[in-house]
Nucleic acid binder design. Structure first.
Lengths: 355, 355
DNA sequence: CCGCTTCGTACAATCGATTGAATTTCGTTG
DNA sequence: CAACGAAATTCAATCGATTGTACGAAGCGG
């Protein structure tokens, strides 16, 4: 600031990078400096062809020199396009907690990449599980975003559906369900659960357990798949609900697996995180993996290959998922309609199972 | 649309939840419906006292009924306050890749919580390491955010400093450095490194190695601390640079630790992730932890307690860090000045060291 | 019953960029 | 040389909410 105060440092005057005396904050300011009108400056910076090439370059140079950036709010207001995508993580049935599931965080990272690639900014919101039903509307209706991605349906499926009925640019990561309105991208969880149980059975397990809370539909479907496979083989599958990704998970698993009347030799885990915790508990209680008890995880997080022994698991293609979500969202923003997609999961055999 | 066309569905008229015939998108629309002026509606929705209580409640009820939400862009433009905080993760020297470091992701989650708590939205950007130097200006100067948080300085310290010189509401997670302009919150990495090495030495290690790339200042400081401790004890410390958090990390560690002429019995790891990978490599190569080789991690991720054996590590208080960052940022937005803060890390002794 | 304050509301300017329409400039051509 | 058309630029309306000011209606004491 200080109005320039006539600094006469030789370098500057020589190299033509004269320090700006006037502050240029608005298009109008820059227009004044350039000796043209605001409209022309706007078009010049947008690179439109209606303005003379020479003028355009001059104006762009000036903008750079003065470090001018057009005010996004004004721009977005006028052009009715924000260039922002809202990404929401509904914490749903989980108690007040922070976003901690590494799978979701990884997906978030991938989405950030994809959106950046497509020229969008990403606005992150957690949805607070306070029983309010307008957490999604607050975002879709804010006029702040061109579209919304929801990471995980949890148990909020009806709410999402209700919003989707009148808000088109919405894509959800999760599990497709019969008669569902909103566009869902996700893994075929039921199939994944089936793969998991089938592999355990093929590897010799006879008494199966499913580890994980099934309030969220995704997990419920994994269990259903596992249960179906067990039934097909005429084997039992015990359900042990434990928290998915918070501090209680560890102790819960410990307590659950130590139950004396519980008998199992194969565990289908709702996530890799749970599997890792289970692995550790089993080790502590002296049960050998995979010899005494076999385990299959779900997700194939990068960490899954690092456990000891490395985790046999069901792989979800996070990168592909993020790519598809963003693609579909872009289509929907364009007004097209898109169908849901359930991607096939794959079994990754490592060392927590016998085959 | 369609001008209402006199739909006379009986249910609606009965239950008083009359479906709106006219679309209410703007303040002016709602004002028309309520029979008042737009200004009054604005004040009513903002809960200002200047408007009659009865009128206010009537208008709020109408707004709810018509599902009206004021356009944020217009609001933000006018009030010159966006209610949005930009959060940037500079990928810095790391090659083109996605945000994957679990420590940063966890910090991000905590920041999301804190910001939501304070009524801010969070706009996420990755900074692309394309050698451009204006990645930060693009965000600070966009008029889209009231302030910016940077997660990790990496090797972009000078750029951040340059921006901080004229952009006040900026707080960075990282390592404070002499003569640095910008406000940094972080762990005392040097002290952490020292704690780590000292503990190894006290536990009997005599040939130390430091595992991790030191391009980023944070890691460099951890190494410096470790090196100082080693020197104090008259012991050597070999530096083995490996990637911090990408696909190459695993193989690199494997290759590094297998080097025949490399001799070590204590490893200071730059992060828990590296430590976990190292743990696995050592196991595969038949070296017992902690008996043959001791390891100390850094971060104390939730996973650190789950490894086998559980990881001795240096704890960073992520939650506190996030809280402090947001607090300081709010102060800076208010125009106050804030000083940097280096939080003391603590040693968490588990089972990868002998004591 | 009048002038005064208090309260509630309406009016209009404003935030800053965008964009369709109007206008100016300039080179061509009949 | 006038008339025309294309190119470049200016003008002015617009996006939708906010807010200072002005205005009108009650309420009050004297």
């Amino acid at each position: 600031m200080a109005a320039g105060s006539g600094k006469s440092n030789g370098e500057d005057s020589g190299t033509d990078t004269s320090v700006p005396q006037v502050e240029v904050r608005t298009l109008a300011d820059l227009a004044r400096v350039a000796g043209v009108s605001a409209g022309t400056v706007s078009r010049a910076l947008a690179g439109k062809s209606l303005v003379n090439t020479e003028t355009r370059e001059r104006i762009q140079a000036l903008a750079r020199q003065y470090g001018f950036r057009p005010n996004q709010m004004a721009s977005k207001l006028r052009s009715r396009r924000t260039g922002v995508i809202g990404v929401v993580i509904p914490l749903g049935h989980e108690k007040r907690q922070s976003i901690s599931d590494p799978f979701f965080l990884t997906l978030l990272g991938q989405l950030a990449d994809q959106l950046t690639e497509s020229g969008y900014d990403l606005m992150l919101s957690r949805a607070i599980p306070d029983g309010t039903t307008d957490w999604l509307e607050r975002i879709t209706g804010s006029g702040m975003v061109d579209g919304v991605l929801v990471i995980g349906q949890s148990d909020q499926s009806e709410i999402i559906d209700r919003v989707a009925a009148h808000y088109r640019p919405l894509v959800v990561w999760g599990n497709h369900r019969e008669g569902q309105v909103h566009c869902v991208v996700g893994t075929d969880n039921e199939h994944g659960g089936r793969l998991s149980a089938e592999h355990l059975i093929a590897s010799g397990a006879r008494r199966l357990a499913f580890l994980g809370d099934t309030t969220g539909i995704e997990i419920a479907m994994r269990r259903r798949g596992a249960a179906a496979a067990a039934q097909d083989a005429g084997l039992p599958l015990t359900h042990i609900p434990v928290a998915l990704a918070n501090a209680e998970m560890g102790p819960q698993i410990k307590a659950a697996l130590a139950m004396p009347d519980l008998d199992y030799d194969g565990i289908v885990c709702a996530s890799d995180l749970i599997a890792m915790s289970a692995l550790r508990v089993l080790y502590e209680t002296g049960r050998a993996v995979p010899d005494d008890t076999q385990i299959v995880g779900f997700d194939d997080l990068p960490l899954a290959a690092q456990t000891m022994p490395p985790l046999t698991t069901i792989r979800q293609e996070i990168g592909d998922g993020a790519r598809v979500m963003v693609e579909k969202l872009k289509s929907r923003i364009e007004g097209e309609d898109t169908s849901s997609l359930a991607m096939a999961p794959t079994l990754i055999v490592r060392r927590t199972t016998l085959r």
